[in-house]
Design a protein around this nucleic acid. Sequence first.
DNA 1: CGGGAAATTGAATAGACTCAAAAGTTGTGG
DNA 2: CCACAACTTTTGAGTCTATTCAATTTCCCG
Lengths: 232, 232
Amino acid sequence: MSASHVALHSVTRRPYRIDATVTVSKSPLDGLGSVMVVKRQRTVSEQGAPADNVYKVVSGALRTVRLLPDGRRHVANFLLPGDFFGLAEHDEYTHSVEAVADTTVIRYPRPAIERLLLTSGPASRHLLGLVCGQLSAAQDRLLLLGRKSAIERLATFLLALADRESSNRTRATAVDLPMNRGDIADYLGMTVETVSRVLTYLRRRRIIQIENVNRIVFLRRDALEDLSLGEA
Amino acid sequence: MSASHVALHSVTRRPYRIDATVTVSKSPLDGLGSVMVVKRQRTVSEQGAPADNVYKVVSGALRTVRLLPDGRRHVANFLLPGDFFGLAEHDEYTHSVEAVADTTVIRYPRPAIERLLLTSGPASRHLLGLVCGQLSAAQDRLLLLGRKSAIERLATFLLALADRESSNRTRATAVDLPMNRGDIADYLGMTVETVSRVLTYLRRRRIIQIENVNRIVFLRRDALEDLSLGEA
DNA sequence: CGGGAAATTGAATAGACTCAAAAGTTGTGG
DNA sequence: CCACAACTTTTGAGTCTATTCAATTTCCCG
């Protein structure tokens, strides 16, 4: 594979740590944004509102939520430090963005972004890489929602979240869950009860240990990996 | 809403008509690609192969397929004229691309795309708009797969496909299905049998008419629209 | 036409859901 | 710092939607 293939992907992730001081990476957007602090459970932007801003997570965690007319709820994504939101929106936000934990974000006004895109090739290219990464992640989730069982979904989720949280090369042995069971259920297309039952099942099989409601230790990561691919 | 918000979205669609002569729209990629004809059921690119090219559909229809180790199949997308594939790929294709009908595509070598991105701001910005559109569509499908019933999924699918096929402003009253039931099932996260049963159910309720296996007429489009949102 | 694949229909099953209750956790005020 | 209320999570029992397996029927293509 030639070097030219790597270019589109340049999503950088920093370790996830609530309230930690995070230095913002060098990026074409530097200086365009303003810092915002969002308390737990507060809304950053509302589904259906004009998409006036793009946000980048500095610390904490957010969920992007969409509601069906009858009240069914779907969590499209969890946003961790380094993640963006609002780039692909048309004129209105298609999702509400809510803080799962106390969170700090940088808000970039869309007109400023648009202006940047018009004038800077490298900036467009940088954002293109970000959106490509998001699309790629969305496609992984399509497979998960379309073809995986409850157990496979949860195994996949735990591993993916753990890997996103820990930046170091060694595979994580535990994962923090800043969101509650209901959020996980709506993210994985299942119910709270099923999430709970699957966690219990994994605990009984000694694959995980539920240190507390918000922290899960991997006792046998290999078994989780097998489960996530449907190989057990 | 100010005009600046519109900029990112500029996905153009042409009428879907197999074997029709299609004039390629003015785009920054003009001249970089070469035309390729793909026979029905033939593969354009293979899951796991080096992602050396980006493709644009001229006429026909493709499916992008992903397989789980145990053989479960997931159709990530159907590509119709005007659609792109391969932009968001990293170094290997994450999906196989197969022709659902005889199809013509334009193939753009990735190095040429990368070169273009490096030198042209407008080109980067154009592709950014395309990928944003793809991400947006993927998110609609996440909601569908995560939270909709079999009936809602099929109603949503039929309407969306019909609207993609007909470019004219008037809402379509029928839809062509170039793919078979298995493809639809793997796209909507269900089984062939369930697809068939739901179509029969809609026919019995006189909401659709199954003109033949590959063409469905909407008898009561409003009812379909209600069903697609879970309002009936 | 005739053979083979695709689609539909049927019957029984299974995985996840709903409703309900118990157990655990958290936040707050005295 | 404890007690209590409110909420979250877990567990249980029964139900339902979509699946699996099987049998036709329909549709193509040669």
